[in-house]
């Protein structure tokens, strides 16, 4: 464990909690892409299948349980509890355009052709594109509430910090995980456009982020 990875995990946890609290307190999921949240729950489910078979550390196990619980709670709030506030008419990204290539690639490019490895690889590739429906929804509505942009900021920051963690681990342990690194770089690049808008608009105290 290093400070970059710890900061990354904390940033990830903060992002998930920001979103969950926003939906719970406003009793509404307007402007939130349910599809992205389902994809994130799928990412955690396929990545943490070793939760009961491999024990790494208390921290590792606790964080996996927390991420799984919070992501499913978020999906529950969107599609069950506050489903009447869900903007399905704006959440129209075709997720099959994400799932098909990701499934194909995880069969082609993986460390071992075993169910657990292929599912882990699937979760890594899927995570890189899981935010697409949410970013698409924002471009479609042309705006995002500031709390949603803070959620996206911490979500984008988490994988950027993981990239620093991978550089650090390569430098100190000569460890590198190419699938995770390539996918993590792609994932962070997808956030760059949002980061630009976030720093130039939201942090100027503009409240809502309205797209040009």
């Amino acid at each position: 464990m290093n400070v970059f990875r710890l900061a990354g995990d904390v940033s990830h946890l903060v992002a998930i909690i920001i979103l969950l609290l926003k939906i719970w307190r406003s009793k509404s999921c307007a402007g939130i892409s349910g599809k992205s949240q389902v994809l994130f729950a799928l990412v955690f489910t396929t990545r943490y299948l070793d939760l009961f078979t491999v024990f790494i550390s208390v921290y590792n196990t606790v964080m996996k349980v927390v991420f799984l619980a919070l992501s499913y709670a978020t999906v529950y709030l969107i599609y069950m509890r506050f489903r009447n506030s869900y903007n399905s008419e704006n959440d129209t990204f075709r997720v099959e355009f994400l799932l098909v290539p990701v499934i194909g690639l995880s069969f082609l490019e993986n460390y071992a052709f075993t169910p657990l490895e292929i599912l882990w690889t699937f979760s890594i590739f899927l995570e890189a594109v899981a935010i697409m429906p949410q970013l698409f929804m924002i471009t479609k509505t042309g705006e995002a509430e500031s709390i949603t942009t803070h959620y996206l900021f911490f979500l984008g920051l988490y994988r950027a910090l993981y990239i620093a963690n991978w550089v650090w681990r390569y430098h100190t342990e000569s460890f590198y995980d190419l699938i995770a690194i390539v996918s993590g770089v792609v994932q962070t690049i997808f956030f760059c456009d949002f980061f630009y808008l976030y720093f130039t608009r939201v942090l100027r105290g503009r409240g809502k982020m309205t797209l040009p």
Binding site: I56, F67, Y111, I179
Partner: peptide, 10 residues
């Protein structure tokens, strides 16, 4: 092999 290591990352 590297496939063992990555499980320690979330």
């Amino acid at each position: 092999d590297s496939s063992v290591n990555h499980k320690d990352e979330l």
